[in-house]
Amino acid sequence: MLKIAVYGKGGIGKSTVVSNVSAALARQGKTVMQIGCDPKSDSTRTLTGGKPIKTVLDLMREHKDSLSLDDMVVQSKSGVFCVEAGGPIPGTGCAGRGIITAFEQLESLHALEVYKPDVVFYDVLGDVVCGGFALPIRQGYAQKVCIVTSGEMMSLYAANNIAYAVKNFAKHKYAALGGLILNAKGIADERALVEKAAAEMETKVIFELPRSPMVQEAEAAGMTVAEYAPQSDMGILFSELAEKLTEAPHE
């Protein structure tokens, strides 16, 4: 079972990338589980036709004593097992602790043993802001961390911070840094900028996704590109990224 955590600055396109990769892998016959780790709970939205799914924490609030995996794991049309960790009521509680609690709940119900996914994606909110959001990097969770970034400075700052956290954990044999995924915004010399930043982070750019209206078009249709137009340029690229992520050796 390969477990990959995907981090990156808020709004950079993590959920879009992860959902497309999940759907592409599912098309290739892999069993995939995607766990959204963001209180906004929108990681799997494009997989579920734009319909929000109940989050683990919402379900815990509603049915404290009678939770089942069937309640919290929704299979998309493309076959991906979708989970949203969720968060506390906005403006209250602790979102990081919420992630820990949701993960503990999934573990107590043996989610991975039941669904036996070949690949698990943890789609984690913007940055490694606290212990809770660092959980997917820790022992027993992801084996590698990939960071989605553009060439924009704020995005690269966030990537650098995440890379620092991953390296800080490396001495404990936690997840390794798997590289940067460039989700291009079309700025000048973008590839060169990101490669330079990657070198400073002692990692590399493992894939580049160009800016394409196809992504928005598919989303407007309530689908991932992998479902909407799998043979399009973007569809093929997501398929290649899926192969890259699941085949590439860890750094």
Binding site: C94, G96, R97, I100, C130, G131, G132, A134, L135, R138, Q139, F169, K171, H172, Y174
Partner: peptide
């Protein structure tokens, strides 16, 4: 416990 402290890392170290 509540703040997500990584006690496993400390114990390992």
């Amino acid at each position: 416990y509540m703040s997500g402290f990584d006690w496993d890392a400390i114990i390992e170290e």
